[in-house]
Amino acid sequence: MDTRRLHRLAQIGMLSGMMVGLAACDSSSDNDNTTEMTRQYQVTITNLTAGQPMSPALVMTHSKDWQSFKLGEPASVGVENIAESGDVSVLMTAEAGNEAIYSQQAGAGILTPGSSELFEISTTATGTLSLSVLSMLVNTNDALAAVNGKDLSTLAVGDTTELYLMTYDTGTEANSETADTIPGPAASSGNGEGFNAARDDVRDAVHIHAGVVTADDGLATSTLLSQHRWDNPVASVSIHRIE
């Protein structure tokens, strides 16, 4: 389909509603459907784990060509901060001037197991639109629950889609599981360190998290117990487009 022609149609103000319909039905993911309208979404994140509180989530909308991290590559310091301490401010500040980022929103607080939080997202940015969600599983060294850029360009007004968060290991901190190195409540007996600039895991590259071993399963130095284990997915994200 000639997407450039569609742009021009949209730009001269013809039937912006038609654009939405076309975009929703166009299965080729390369369309760069520029519109002048506001896109608005309700995003509900639910923690699906047994015993892993999630740090306040960072929800971002952005161009589909941008990603906050890449599998197999070192994590940025911003992403490292989220994964090791739940602090989203470093990444938000680093990306504040980035034209590829349309919106950034941090959650109101810790998302406990079983609970949900609703985010209302609105952007007038044009072009492709992807969603990313980043949150730390706080009873870990550096486990990052994430949706790493899901293209929502074809989600039509009124439609809902559901995504799931996998858990990544940012590879930025050794998975010692000790009380001194984990910031979550499971480590209240120790120093509970969050961010540490040292990169001392098996390799400085993001990979799929192998899960925690825990003291219950033979890692004597671990402050974690059976209830801190998880399987993927660890959270769901329901996305409803309202405008």
Binding site: I208, A210, V213, D217, W230, N232
Partner: peptide, 13 residues
């Protein structure tokens, strides 16, 4: 080694 060789799916992209 339980700290090195475990995995959760997915294992490949």
């Amino acid at each position: 080694d339980s700290t090195q060789h475990r995995w959760l799916n997915p294992v490949a992209k």
